[in-house]
Design a protein around this nucleic acid. Structure first.
Lengths: 212, 212, 212, 212
DNA sequence: AAATAAACGAGACGGTACGTCCTGTCTTGCT
DNA sequence: AGCAAGACAGGACGTACCGTCTCGTTTATTT
């Protein structure tokens, strides 16, 4: 299952018949190797989190040399992030129905669901945690994870702004921090739980303001 | 400066005149040991961050056995947090002048200053980062750092609420996430900078709402 | 037998009864560790020669950390030499019967026997080989192997010289090279075999001279 | 084609101007490749000895693929030996003047000079050392180095024997071990130095015998 | 005051992972 | 067709910490 493609190639020596897999030690197609690494990285990450996530173990379970990993990833955090993207289906959609309040609520509720019902939430917090001391992971995270998501939300907010649903002098980038930033806050420093009521309150507070 | 106290004690095993410190190996007062450990931990934490922060190095620079550290701290994260508290003067004040908007702004501006002009901001993000995979640190952080701070802010908000400066149906705990959580978001995932304009926008957005 | 001492302590978790050996990870008596290392090194050396002799494998089979080996031995060659001494009974006797020619012949025949009928000969050549690029091994070899053996032979030759059995102007150190050095030559560069006839010829040539 | 200058001494710095060596990847004349390899091997061997002598480094400095090396040499030792022969002018002469004692002394003195004043001695000991665990090197060494040299010496000794200068029942092969073998002994296991006095003693001891 | 118990520094211990290097095999792309 | 270039799996290297444990010393407490 790990390497179905090798069957087609044949590895040269013997079609099979007896030897188990017996991969030769020479060069392999680069993206076959990448695929094996990322698959192993994703599995290991979701099975054990960042604690048990080790370049050595990824190499072993992927049937890959450590060198091949160090060639392509600058740090174990960067590899873990790529493994995360491989493991999860990375939809990244933010539908704009015209009702900004409903759209925000839907999107935030989906986020709550993701963190509550899947291991993805814990993994992401561990990745953010590791990024604090791993500049390569931090850069990759901003470029491939947080950046695009932030941009998507900002776009939707700007559309709503142009439709006149939001005050013109509001900076949408700040709004993003007051919605998703608040959620990440509760994920990373769980003094309080991240619930549907919470995100409903987030939107309510922001939309109508706090003043009586 | 880091550990001037050792001079006073001296322990005087050998008058020497040559050897550097050379303390005897026998039992020492418990809190003298604790003090040395915390002092070394704080210094090391601020000098090198969590990357170079190692129980082994703390023990060496403190002139202390590793065992003495393991006796009192469950993990290196927990030790680092205590070292942080030792190194910074932990004022933790939230004056309530009666003008909630001005008070929030002041407090948030102080936070911005702290992260911009002192190493404390980076240290805290690294502690939060380490807490994602260190349950002992996470617990200690919530109990001694984030919990008290959150409580203080919630209290001030509740007072304002009782004074009628905030809507009665607003949950102050959520407001905290929309102010400080937004700030931590920008610290931990620096897609956007944490500035005075940003915190001004936070308060403005929340107080008057986003609707036109 | 290997760890009788652990019984007294109890290892904490389980009194015994079930767990196999379950050595704790803490400090062990230094010479117990040394003994395990040397035993494993000797066995590995005689089983596989210098080719398969690896610090990693010695550590694994000895149940010892690599650090413990690096602490005490400066190079893998030096460890191999100590392993050799542990594995072989290091008699090192050179009886002086008064008949120098017979004594030399006996000693050289024993050497031939050693190299022909035991693996010791091959091991020694590999050690000498490794010593060419391992200064630590070279020093240890001279100090603990070749030096003492050379001294012993020189002493016997000097005694014979004082008894008048050898010319007075002969340097016994050179004679040693012309007997044992010749043997090592055939061991290390086996163009010709090392046999009893050979060592007989060595003694004969030297004692009566080549001139007709 | 880009570097026809390699014919001279070695690739060196390349006058080129910018790119380091950067030859095209296409096919090249086989013995041009061999020449580059041997030149690089010899240089590397004399610069760093067997310790730094690596197939990888030879390939890199020769601007040659590793494959081309593995095609022609069975082991790095065998390559090193060929590199040695390329680097040194391999005279291999043993003039027979009719005075066997003088001839032996001259030849041995030349050997002493070679080991004392040139790096060749050290290199040869390292090659002999490596040969202890490298059968391909051992075979090549016997065939191309020690064998011919031994044969040459044996021939000269046999001539002297036929002239009646040596006892008829002496085996010249053994004499070789008692002269050159003794020298290699002092090279490989330097308990005692290899000097002119030493080789004079070798010849003297052997020719006139040890008995008073 | 002497004997005992507790805690200490020092640091070795078994382990795990690190990041680098080299081996010998194998693929790709240029010439 | 044959090479350079170099990626590949494997495995050893020597280092750094981890958390555990032993050793001999020194202080505090009990007798």
């Amino acid at each position: 299952m790990a390497t179905p493609s090798t069957a087609g190639k044949g590895t040269g020596t013997t079609p099979d018949g007896d030897a188990p897999v017996r991969r030769g030690r020479g060069r392999r197609p680069a993206d076959e190797v990448r695929r094996d690494i990322l698959s192993a990285a994703g599995t290991l990450l979701f099975d054990e989190g960042m604690t048990g996530f080790t370049i050595e173990r990824v190499a072993t379970t992927a049937g890959v040399s450590k060198m091949s990993i160090y060639k392509w990833w600058p740090s174990k955090g960067a590899l873990a992030l790529d493994g995360y993207f491989t493991a999860v289906e990375n939809t990244l959609a933010f539908p704009d129905t015209g009702d900004i309040e409903a759209d925000l609520l839907n999107q935030l509720r989906a986020f709550v669901h993701l963190t509550a019902d899947t291991p993805a939430g814990r993994i992401v917090t561990e990745l953010i945690g590791a990024a604090q001391t791993d500049p390569d992971l931090a850069a990759a995270f901003r470029e491939h994870y947080s950046g695009p998501r932030r941009r998507l939300a900002v776009d939707v907010l700007q559309c709503a702004q142009q439709r006149g649903q939001l005050r013109a002098d509001v900076d949408p980038r700040i709004v993003v921090d007051q919605l998703w930033g608040a959620c990440y806050h509760r994920l990373l420093i769980p003094d309080e739980p991240l619930t549907e009521e919470f995100v409903a309150g987030l939107v309510s507070n922001l939309m109508q303001g706090l003043r009586p």
